[in-house]
Amino acid sequence: MHDEITEVARHRQVRGGTRLAGVVSDLARPVVVVGSTTPVGQLEVMFRNPELGCVVVVEDGGTRTGIIMRSGLTAALTGRLGYGRAVLERRPTSEVTDWSPMVVHPHDAVSSVATRAMERSDARRYDDVLVAAEQWASASTADLMRSLVAALADRSSRDPQTRLPTRSATWHSLARRCDLVQGTRTRVVLVLLDVRGMSALNARHGFVAGDAVLVDLAGRLVGGLPRGCEAGRVDGDRFAVLATLPPMDDIQAAASADHLRRHVLANLAQPSAATGAAVWPELRSSVVWSVAGAADAEELVREAESRLGGSGSPGGSRVGRTAPSAPGPSEGAGDRLPLRRVG
Rank of each mutant, 00 (worst) to 15 (best):
R155P: 07
V319E: 02
L148I: 06
T93N: 01
V33L: 05
L20V: 10
V342T: 07
A326P: 10
A294H: 10
S325M: 14
D250G: 09
V8D: 07
T162D: 05
D143M: 12
S313D: 08
D60A: 08
P314K: 00
A212W: 11
R12D: 05
E299M: 15
V279D: 09
T115P: 04
A257V: 05
A209D: 12
R29A: 11
I67M: 09
V241H: 05
S25M: 07
A86G: 06
L214G: 01
C178Q: 06
V342D: 10
W171G: 10
G316A: 02
I5F: 01
L144K: 00
R19W: 11
W136G: 02
E305Q: 09
A243L: 03
P101D: 10
S157C: 13
A203Q: 07
S94Q: 09
G82W: 01
G22W: 03
C229G: 01
T244M: 10
P314E: 00
S25Y: 07
R48S: 13
D335R: 01
L201E: 02
A139L: 14
V149E: 13
R48P: 12
V56M: 05
R341T: 08
E51V: 14
D250A: 14
R15V: 11
L225A: 12
R120Q: 03
D159C: 02
Y83E: 04
V319L: 02
C229F: 06
L300Y: 03
C178M: 03
E299Y: 12
G206R: 06
L130P: 00
V45A: 13
T141L: 08
V8W: 09
T141W: 11
V288M: 03
M198C: 07
G276T: 01
V234W: 07
L242W: 00
R176D: 06
A254Y: 04
A255V: 12
S256N: 11
L337K: 05
W136N: 04
